[in-house]
Design a protein around this nucleic acid. Structure first.
Length: 778
DNA sequence: CAGTGAGCGAGCTTCCGCTTGACTT
């Protein structure tokens, strides 16, 4: 029996600390918070100074009993949860729930896990800081009030099971507003001119690529310029050399790691966190949920040694980075390898990749600046004020670039800067090889990716490292936003090239606007956002979190009473809740698109019980028709033509064996129906144009497949040939056939045996918030 | 590259931040 019980938040951390402290200390963990506000109802008494109703979480009951037992046996209990608001609250809840005694309870904190730091903490224990706890309670209660009072308004006004919250609603707003910017975006076109120059005499041999200092608005202007260039003389005005420096980025925080892993490996935010968790549990990296760029003195020393060994002394530059994010609570170190001398690790390929990234980023952050020389050459054109310019960059000393370079968000391929430029001198003339004017288009602002959304949220101080990934799954699960690929569209552009004598004009085509795993808002997301902005503009304000954080800071410093703060917030807020329940109208509830020229009926679009629909005929029309919108259509942008097209389905294609063939689009994409059977169309088919002949082909193909499908049938039990190969089905459940077994030889008895054998290990149904997967479209 | 192509209504849904687990194909 140990005299000392130390409780930290994470079990992996407990393990390392126990090793450092030795046998007099038993170190265990609380697995985060142990209790929370009652789940049913508000969990807060708004009529009694926001008295919270705390309940031990069901999955923590066993753990709490265990901790109670341990704490009774210990002589001293050390509450060593993290050194931030949440950590202080965890300590306070532990103190209360475990009914600890002041006399033998000590609160300690440390923000790096080294023997010295921990021993120092133990030498300097303190008591629980109730002001900090109150700041956490205010935060927790405010979030509950917002979430649980606003969400029910949405159930009533828009759709059941929707949700609103301080963090998620702003995340959706960002995506909705970006989409609106894109809708309103007007593409502008310009002609960019670039030239390739070669030596004017035979002495030098070079090719120099240069760009014109200004673009032309019209094709005509660009052409006039090219004409002028035909007989122009090109003279080097000057060669300018400037030394420049590049500095490494700070070590990883949660959000920067998510961004880089997304840019470099296309990992999703959740994927990155899962892999990082595994590395953390194996003791390979420090904690992965952090907002700090700080490195421990131990790590700084190890980095210095490693860099010296690998690259030499002149590559070393020890740096400590200031955390940029103002909302940072800095309870942990930056994310770094635990042992910097381990340049690589064993493990799954993805684990190796992520570790390598973390290692490089950490090491680079402690390396010298890269020294570069940037050269700019300006070239004058006779009788013309515009100039050509060529720039090149040469690395003089690679410094940190030896190991790592941060990637860029916009994968623009117009990297104009090249390497070494030819050695030209002022006054020298150069000859043109060719000059081209290419039509270019301005680009709409980019849609958010998971990682760029996290970046934006962090900049706004909204959300925490532990919530970025869950926030993204929430807004997807509510179907406020979709993460999607979109095919691009073809666009034509002109390119004029001045060759030796003539100007050649070409009309070329390019694909633009293709999107890969980007966020698009849904109609529900748009309507909910508009409603919330209309009625709860303060909460949807991008600076709302930052403002209340100031109050929380004051509470933490003991300058403001948390109950007073909540009263101030709640009074006007709750009034608004009541008002909007009574009176609020939905913004953009319905859009009238126009009149159908064929029937003379009104065409409109709105959100109905099962989602967005188009409607033909007014509400009082007994023969009104409905059609669901397609997945890539939005009420806001739907045109009359697109809406009318929706009513062309279902469409009678023809007849086969005396029965009608109908084509339409369903949940799983376009299909043909015949004799009350549904057959999915192939990629190349279109329900609007499919012919009778093709439809019959599909029907016959399906029949043939079905006939091959059945291998055997024993009453309820069937042996079928499916997508993954043969399988047994019974009562709507499927069972595997062992490898090496020929399905044709299975007897009834064999099947029964296989079923009962596999029934035992059926998965337990878990009541987890599941992300509903919408039907996939081809 | 399987299965699938609804809907008459009861009762429940929901927040943000700490943590890890563990169903099978």
């Amino acid at each position: 029996m140990q005299e000392n019980l130390v409780i930290v938040e994470s079990p992996a951390k407990a393990k390392t600390i126990e090793k450092l402290l030795g046998k007099d200390y038993f170190v265990t963990s609380s697995y985060g918070h142990i209790r929370d506000l009652e789940k049913k109802g508000l969990g807060v008494d708004v009529n009694d100074n926001f008295k919270p109703e705390y309940v031990v979480s069901p999955d923590k009951k066993k753990l709490v009993e265990e901790l109670k037992k341990l704490s009774k046996q210990a002589k001293t209990v050390w509450l060593a949860s993290d050194e931030d608001r949440e950590g202080e609250a965890i300590a306070w809840h532990l103190y209360n729930v475990l009914k600890l005694d002041d006399k033998n309870t000590k609160r300690i904190t440390f923000n790096e896990i080294t023997k010295n730091a921990i021993l120092e903490a133990i030498q300097n224990p303190r008591t629980i800081d109730i002001n900090l706890v109150n700041a956490q309670q205010a935060r927790r209660i405010l979030d509950r009030l917002v979430g649980f009072e606003v969400s029910p308004i949405l159930w009533k006004k828009i759709k059941s099971s929707l949700s609103a919250g301080r963090v998620q609603s702003v995340a959706v707003r960002l995506i909705v507003e970006r989409e609106r910017e894109i809708m309103e975006f007007k593409t502008e076109t310009a002609y960019k001119v670039s030239a390739i120059f070669i030596s004017a005499d035979e002495k030098q041999k070079f090719q120099l690529k240069a760009t014109l200092s200004a673009d032309f608005k019209t094709e005509k202007e660009a052409k006039v310029f090219l004409e002028k260039c035909k007989d122009a003389i090109f003279t080097v005005e000057g060669v300018d050399k400037k030394p420049t420096k590049k500095s490494p980025s700070a070590p990883f925080t949660t959000s920067t790691l998510q961004q880089e892993a997304s840019r470099k490996f296309r990992f999703s935010v959740a994927q990155t966190m899962n892999i990082a968790q595994r590395l953390y549990e194996r003791g390979l990296i420090t904690y992965m949920r952090t907002d700090s760029t700080n490195l421990s003195t131990l790590a700084l020393g190890a980095a210095k040694n490693t860099i010296e060994n690998l690259f030499g002394e002149k590559y070393v530059k020890t740096r400590q980075y200031k955390t940029k994010s103002k909302s940072a609570q800095e309870a942990h170190e930056a994310i770094r390898p635990t042992y910097l001398q381990n340049t690589e690790i064993e493990g799954a390929p993805q684990e190796k990749k992520l570790y390598d990234l973390i290692w490089k980023r950490t090491i680079a952050s402690q390396m010298a600046d890269a020294e570069l020389e940037k050269t700019t050459i300006n070239i004058n054109i006779s009788d013309e004020t515009k100039k050509f310019q060529a720039t090149g960059e040469v690395i003089i000393f690679d410094g940190f670039l030896k190991v790592y370079m941060e990637s860029n968000d916009d994968d623009n391929e117009n990297a104009e800067t090249t390497g070494l430029l030819p050695a030209l001198v002022a006054g020298q003339t150069v000859a043109r090889k060719e000059i081209t004017a290419t039509q270019r288009f301005s680009q709409h602002p980019p849609r958010y990716t998971e990682a760029s959304l996290v970046k934006k949220l962090e900049e706004l101080g909204i959300g925490r490292p532990s919530t970025y990934a869950p926030t993204i799954s929430t807004i997807i699960a509510r179907e406020y936003v979709l993460k999607e690929d979109r095919a691009g569209v073809e666009r034509s552009y002109t390119k004029m090239t001045l060759k030796t004598k003539d100007i050649v004009t070409e009309n070329l085509k390019e694909i633009v606007g293709a999107e890969k795993t980007k966020f698009f808002p849904s109609d529900i997301g748009i309507v909910v956002t508009d409603f919330l902005i209309e009625n709860f503009s303060n909460i949807l304000d991008f600076s709302f979190t930052a403002k209340i954080e100031e109050y929380f800071d004051e509470i933490a410093e003991g300058k403001l009473d948390w109950v007073v703060m909540l009263h101030k917030f709640y009074k006007p807020f709750h009034k608004k809740v009541d008002e909007s329940l009574e009176t609020a109208q939905l913004a953009n509830a319905e859009r009238i698109l126009g009149i159908d020229p064929k029937s003379g009926k009104q065409v409109s679009a709105r959100i109905a019980r099962f989602g967005p629909i188009a409607q033909l005929g007014t509400n009082d029309d007994p023969e009104k028709k409905f059609s669901s919108l397609k997945k890539d259509q939005l009420i806001e942008t739907l045109t009359l033509g697109e809406a009318l097209k929706l009513f062309d389905l279902p469409r009678t294609v023809g007849e086969y064996e005396g029965k009608e063939i109908v084509a339409s689009t369903g949940r799983f994409g376009p299909y043909v129906r015949h004799d009350s059977k549904f057959i999915s169309m192939k990629k190349e088919d279109d329900p609007y144009t499919i012919t009778e002949k093709r439809a019959i082909e599909l029907i016959e193909e399906k029949r043939k497949k079905d006939s091959e499908k059945n291998i055997a049938k024993f009453g309820d039990i069937e042996v079928l040939n499916g997508f993954y190969g043969p399988y047994i089905t019974c009562d709507g459940k499927n069972y595997k056939i062992p490898k090496g077994q020929d399905p044709k030889t299975l007897t009834h008895q064999d099947c029964i045996a296989l079923i009962s054998e596999q029934k035992g290990k059926e998965p337990k149904t878990k009541t987890r918030a599941k992300t509903k997967k919408p039907a996939s479209r081809k």
